[in-house]
């Protein structure tokens, strides 16, 4: 989301609006198990065998890629905990084509707002309209029922080649820096 290594300084002044810093202790509570997709969720069950690959970004998005070259995008538990109670989630429009790193919406809480960036290029196939009526889902099940969008990947090979996409161990390690 907004703490991209590259974008952070610019976004900090423009986008984040919290007057109070989040606790830096949060990261210590996390381990790899916290970053796993909820196996009971719609996302996991989209195709019978579950996602082919799950990747993460330094900005706290997750990407669950399926063998039909579509991927679900959401935010990690770390991000949803840091945001607090979500009050509003802005979703992208179905049919729109996005670039990797392009904003596809935002998650708002009482204390702050964060952009959601698409981890990959592609076309928005579906959006999770449940989030419009129940933004709190993002706090309850960020890695499952609170998926944000499904994207048809323009180039499926980037999932393995991109250095911006982290595996679970790399993502977990990145939290140590916070």
């Amino acid at each position: 989301m907004i703490s991209s290594l590259l974008r952070a300084p610019k976004l900090a002044s423009r986008f984040s609006a919290s007057r109070y810093p989040s606790s830096r202790i949060i990261a210590a509570r996390f381990n790899s198990a916290d970053h796993k997709i909820n196996t009971n969720s719609f996302v996991y069950k989209y195709l019978e065998e579950g996602p082919k690959t799950v990747k993460y970004t330094a900005e706290h998005e997750w990407l669950a890629v399926f063998k039909d070259d579509t991927a679900f995008v959401g935010i990690t538990k770390y991000a949803s905990d840091a945001l607090g109670d979500a009050t509003f989630i802005e979703l992208p429009e179905v049919g729109v084509t996005v670039e990797a790193g392009e904003s596809i919406g935002s998650v708002e809480s009482v204390k702050s707002a964060s952009e959601i960036y698409s981890p990959v290029a592609g076309e928005i196939l579906a959006i999770n309209q449940n989030l419009e009526s129940s933004p709190g889902l993002i706090n309850e099940d960020p890695l499952g029922e609170a998926w944000i969008a499904q994207i048809k990947l323009s180039d499926p090979s980037v999932v393995e080649s991109s250095e911006e996409l982290l595996d679970v161990a790399e993502y977990d390690a990145s939290l140590e820096d916070h």
Binding site: M1, I2, S3, A8, P9, L11, A12, S13, F15, S16, A17, S18, R19, Y20, P21, S22, R24, I26, E59, H60, A79, A82, L83, S112, S114, H178
Partner: peptide, 13 residues
Amino acid sequence: MLRSISLISKRSN
């Protein structure tokens, strides 16, 4: 996210 939030806190404190 946290990076940016802590930058803000430096400004206001």
